[in-house]
């Protein structure tokens, strides 16, 4: 199940999805070194307080979150979680958050000086601006940011795409043309629930991001379309609950996959999925040598 991605070798194509992994808490529950890599929560130049509670709501086959990228800031991340992960010899993808180009640049510049293996640029969080608008919906802005970041770091830069756009392929192509080393998709879909009794949104933030098995067909379709149009590697995610789900993304053209919501529902899901995926490889062959026909 070994893969090559952006000059790295991973022992298998499975990583965690940003915002659903915690080095200490996840590390207590399974052997995190058994994954191809781990992806950490979005980190900004300074600490962010995140959105008011409630931030979590249940939906059919999934969940809404409006955490709003609460994070302790890049310095605390470097001294804490990153140091812990690197001490364990884990390949680390750091998810980068920002309100503006300058903030993304500040984090990337700082992380360039660390042992982080890859940077995932979250231009697609739906919880920052009213109505779920995202930076990553504007292909010119994504291209400009990508070019800037590439000048600031020699580490692989992966742009994380939002599904909340008219045509995800156009954003993907813009990022590739601007020099992105890889793409990851999908981030969460904008969603909302309303309390019948009070008439108020269930989430304090109003809207949130939908994730979990409910989004998987949307994610597979987007990964398939993007992979058929770009040459750079794609990490696919969205509703992966089993090894079979992961295999489906690899068949759609993804080089690797990320497990998010499944790990919130069962802390050991990422390593269980590695084992199940190995069985799929045995049963169906290497997905990277196959094509959707």
């Amino acid at each position: 199940m070994k893969i090559q991605i952006c000059g790295m070798e991973w022992k298998n194509p499975v990583t965690t999805a940003a915002g659903t992994f915690n080095a200490r808490e996840s590390g207590r529950r399974y052997d995190i070194t058994a994954l191809g890599a781990v992806t950490t929560k979005g980190v900004a130049p300074e600490p962010w307080p995140g959105n008011p509670l409630p931030r979590i709501a249940e939906t059919y086959g999934g969940m809404l979150n409006s955490v709003g990228l609460e994070n302790p800031g890049v310095e605390a991340f470097i001294a804490g979680e990153l140091a812990e992960l690197k001490a364990r010899g884990v390949t680390v993808i750091a998810n980068v958050a920002g309100h503006s180009e300058a903030e993304f640049c500040a984090v990337v510049e700082r992380l360039d000086e660390t042992a982080v293996d890859m940077l995932e640029i979250n231009v697609s969080c739906p919880n920052l601006y009213e109505g779920g608008a995202v930076f990553g919906a504007d292909e010119a802005a994504v291209a400009k940011l990508t070019r800037k970041l590439k000048r600031l770091t020699g580490k692989p830069v992966m742009i994380k795409l939002s599904p909340n756009v008219t045509d995800i392929v156009r954003i993907a192509e813009a990022a590739e043309a601007a020099g992105a080393d890889a793409l990851s998709l999908i981030n969460t879909l904008v969603g909302m629930r309303i309390d019948l009794r009070t008439g108020r949104p269930v989430l304090a933030n109003g809207t949130g991001g939908l994730s979990g098995p409910a989004v998987k067909p949307v994610a597979v379709a987007m990964v398939y379309r993007v992979c058929s149009r770009v040459k750079i590697p794609v990490i696919g995610m969205g509703g992966i609950m089993t090894g079979g789900d992961a295999y489906e993304f690899l068949l759609a053209g993804a080089t690797a996959v990320a497990v998010g919501t499944a790990a919130l529902l069962d802390p050991e899901a990422p390593v269980r999925i590695v084992h199940e995926l190995a069985e799929c490889y045995e049963q169906y062959g290497d997905p990277h040598k196959r094509k959707v026909v």
Binding site: T20, S26, I56, V67, A263, L265
Partner: peptide, 17 residues
């Protein structure tokens, strides 16, 4: 109490001041 996405410290859904 808080609404919980994971209950074990991974999702930051339950964070208070």
């Amino acid at each position: 109490e808080a609404r919980m996405g994971c209950g074990y410290g991974a999702c930051v859904g339950c964070s208070i001041e």
